[in-house]
Design a protein around this nucleic acid. Structure first.
Length: 471
RNA sequence: UCCCCUGUAGCUCAAUGGUAGAGCGGGCGGCUGUUAACCGCCAGGUUACUGGUUCGAGUCCAGUCGGGGGAGCCA
């Protein structure tokens, strides 16, 4: 019985396995027949970008009945000897002694995945099969690599991973439209005497939703474990139809105690650089493929990214710089002025044209930011930061949190919010409050930036967007 | 939600308002230690849907549905 080896193992350790007996499993990419009495079958098992070439002699008993019927997508297992190939490449190939077909492809004429370029739009319609393509195989492995890098980064720095809830009954998140979670009969719900829906009868005896952020929950654990993070799915019911938005996406949200906004920005920079350094060293095969087929500049972009320090700029200075280029004739659809929320065109101009690399914009006007962000001494800005990246815009949004109860209460009041639901959040400021800060990093946007895939729907296995929840 | 673009063979795309085509994929044959090979033949279509203009509509118009890009919101 031969050892089962992955294509990745055979490729990476070719010197070890040269001459060895091996068993391999996977899916057929291509088949070429030679009248010299052999067929060449390229096999992918998804373990790496490359394929293993199987050399199948016509002396096998199932050669004419099965081997010659192999088409793209058939699943097989093969046993034989690994030897150096005779073709152009020096890599190992399998001289097949026996080959078993697990599943043929019905109707190869219409098999959706062909050995050719498909459009991303088409592949989204066959999302159950698209991981079989080179590009989506690469993105899947890259996604895994980056996720592992996130955990490694935090673990090595004594952060604790906190599993914040997916379902939340606090209506105080304020980061956009939420998906309702309910077991009530949506067609004929129980009613209150006033005629409204009676949520006392609902599963949690109150309204509940899918979380839009783990931040408020992770802050609680931060004020006990000091360095924490969440990494999980979040949900936004916004009717956003863009290449940068998903209804379900993954977010990384660290929170650090006894830390200010500058430490927060340093953490964001360190995390992103660690992720991309890991990617460049661990998935060189997939990145090389992306350079060839998707985005010529993606490796170069990441190499530059990990070497350069982020530009740090106050919001006030960013506005001055934008006003300066506008004065020189740069046209904007929206005029630039202090106090405005920067539009996409402004963010892109700043990171792509003015700075030319990622930029951290800090200390925004208080009126355009959330209630929990720490009021600066000037009384008109808060300690908020966004990391803007060329080509994609905002990938990180964060802040130092308001730790002073009286200031927090004043903010809640001035923004017209009801303080009651925030009782537990306020308790953190009553019992041993500390300066603390954190941010959210959009995982799919990070993958988009790293790979050059310009639509986040191609950066998650099964994208959920308005009017689209297939598979 | 708003603006713009778009929908033709399994896929990627052609086709002045006038006979719907090519490449790839598939089938058959040839050739070859081949590399998303190469050569020949064959099959494959209610041009998204509904209606309209016209002698004649893939093409022009209206509506519906799908897809994309941009904006807003944000990660």
């Amino acid at each position: 019985m031969s050892t089962t080896l992955s294509v990745a193992t055979i490729t990476k350790q070719s010197h070890v396995h040269d001459g060895a007996n091996a068993r391999v499993t996977g899916w057929v990419r291509t088949r070429r027949d030679s009248k010299a009495g052999i067929s060449f079958v390229n096999l992918s098992d998804g373990s790496c970008q490359g394929v293993l070439q199987l050399v199948v002699p016509n002396t096998l008993s199932n050669y004419t009945t099965e081997i010659l019927r192999l088409t793209a997508g058939c699943s097989i297992e093969a046993e034989g000897v690994l030897v150096k190939g005779q073709g152009k490449t020096q890599s190992l190939e399998l001289q097949v002694a026996s080959l078993k077909v697990h599943g043929f492809v019905d109707d190869p004429d219409t098999y959706p995945i062909q050995p050719k370029a498909h459009t991303y739009e088409y592949l989204r319609e066959v999302a159950h099969l698209r991981p079989r393509t080179n590009t989506f195989g690469a993105v899947g492995r890259i996604r895994h690599c980056l996720a592992m890098a996130v955990h490694r980064f935090f673990h090595e720095r004594e952060f604790q991973w906190v599993h914040t809830p997916i379902i939340t009954a606090s209506d105080c998140e304020g980061a956009g439209q939420m998906f309702r979670v309910s077991t009530l009969d949506g067609v004929n719900p129980p009613r209150t005497p006033e005629g409204g829906i009676d949520f006392d009868k609902d599963f949690f005896a109150k309204q509940s939703h899918l979380t839009v952020s783990g931040q408020l929950n992770v802050e609680c654990w931060c004020l006990a474990l000091s360095k924490v993070y969440t990494f999980g799915p979040t949900f936004r019911a916004e009717n956003s139809n863009t290449s940068r938005h998903l209804a379900e996406f993954w977010m990384i949200e660290p929170e650090i105690a006894f830390a200010d906004l500058a430490a927060d920005a340093d953490l964001a920079e360190g995390l992103l650089k660690f992720m991309f350094t890991s990617l460049l060293s661990e998935r060189a095969d997939d990145m090389a493929f992306l350079v060839e087929r998707v985005d010529k500049t993606c490796v170069e972009r990441l190499e530059t990214f990990v070497k350069a320090s982020f530009e740090r700029m106050d919001y006030t200075d960013a506005i001055k710089q934008l006003e300066a280029v506008a004065a020189k004739g740069r046209k904007f659809d929206y005029p630039v002025s202090w106090g405005m929320d920067m539009q996409s065109e402004h963010e892109r101009c700043l990171t792509e044209e003015i700075v030319g690399r990622p930029v951290v914009v800090m200390n925004y006007p208080k009126d355009i930011k959330a209630f929990y962000m720490r009021m600066n001494d000037d009384g008109r800005t808060v300690a908020a930061m966004d990391v803007l990246a060329p080509g994609i815009g905002e990938i990180v949004g964060g802040s130092q949190r308001e730790e002073r109860l009286d200031v927090l209460d004043a903010r809640i009041k001035s923004m017209g919010l009801d303080p009651a639901p925030y009782w537990w959040y306020r308790d953190l400021r009553r019992y041993g409050t500390v300066p603390h800060a954190g941010f959210g990093l959009g995982f799919e946007r990070t993958i988009s930036y790293a790979t050059g895939l310009s639509n986040v729907r191609d950066c998650i296995p099964f994208p959920r967007t308005p009017r689209n929840c297939d598979f």
